[in-house]
Nucleic acid binder design. Structure first.
Length: 270
DNA sequence: GCCCAGGTATAAA
DNA sequence: TTTATACATGGG
């Protein structure tokens, strides 16, 4: 357990990627690096030039970390392609050149985005922290994300310590549907987008927006780009002339660019 | 106090 | 099928 170095890093900005609202367990240490827990491993990460440095990672997990940070995908190329799709996308893509779509654990993404509804990023992070501290397995330097089985055995009131309010019953319902096999998250990787979305929405507290986030951030469904979530909410007037199908395999990244862009241009939101 | 936050469930029109 | 309101909590 020491420093793992992954070389040849390009088009990767840790702050843009880890604080953009796609994940909630990374903390800014202050020197440009971040500490967090992924798949039960507590590490810190930093970038120096073209080197990604992961501290406290074991060498046997190298492939897992490359996968998690989506290092196999050429985001520079993706960004060019997206910029060429639409003038608004060219503008939006300028604002977050270093964003990557992480491959988070599906169950963690599901619970995290249930918590995210009608909430803000800072408080979401606090609730997720308390969820892990109270119900996650202790690991060296932190806590793993709780398993579906552990949460499924609880009652909504047992979640009082995490202070997520009305979302407690949603979290328990999600955990029980996953633990019982009623929802098979892995299966959602292969299903047509609309079917995967419909399955997720059988969970109380999961609507189109949460389902979209779970599919993109938890299952890396890069084909997700629901009109009813992003076109209406963020920039209906600017995108009045576009067919979302043109985004194809870049839809997920395009969606993240738009969200990031819209955050900096609230006047474009409806 | 009031408003908002990576929304959704629920009831009513 | 569409629209209005409540929802727990905490920061500004």
């Amino acid at each position: 357990m020491d420093k793992m170095i992954i070389e040849g890093i390009r088009d990767f900005d840790l702050s843009e990627t880890l604080t953009c609202g796609q994940c909630f367990r990374w903390k800014d240490i202050g020197d440009g690096s971040f500490s967090g827990v992924v798949r039960g491993k507590a590490v810190s990460v930093g970038i120096d030039g073209d080197k990604l440095i992961i501290t406290n990672a074991s060498e046997s997990d190298r492939a897992m970390w490359q996968d998690y940070f989506d290092l196999a995908l050429d985001y520079g190329e993706a960004r060019k392609r997206i910029a060429d799709l639409h003038p608004v996308m060219r503008e939006a893509a300028r604002f977050a050149p270093g964003i990557r779509i992480l491959r988070q654990e599906p169950f963690e993404a599901l619970i995290s985005f249930i918590i995210s509804q009608n909430n803000n990023i800072k408080r979401i992070s606090g609730i997720v922290d308390r969820l892990c501290e109270n119900f996650g397995e202790p690991i060296g330097g932190g806590y793993a994300f709780p398993t579906a089985g552990r949460l499924a055995a609880l009652e909504p009131d047992d979640l009082a310590p995490i202070r997520a309010g009305f979302r407690h019953r949603y979290i328990i319902d999600a955990a029980r549907k996953v633990h019982s096999g009623q929802i098979d998250l892995e299966k959602l990787r292969e299903l047509p987008y609309a079917e995967a979305q419909r399955e997720l929405m059988t969970i109380t507290g999961v609507g189109v927006k949460v389902a979209d986030c779970v599919l993109l951030y938890g299952l890396h469904r890069m084909d997700s780009f629901p009109m009813d979530v992003w076109m209406k909410r963020a920039m209906a007037t600017l995108f009045s002339d576009i067919d979302p199908a043109v985004f194809g395999e870049y839809a997920g990244i395009a969606q993240q660019y738009i969200y990031h862009y819209a955050r900096m241009h609230p006047e474009l939101m409806i």
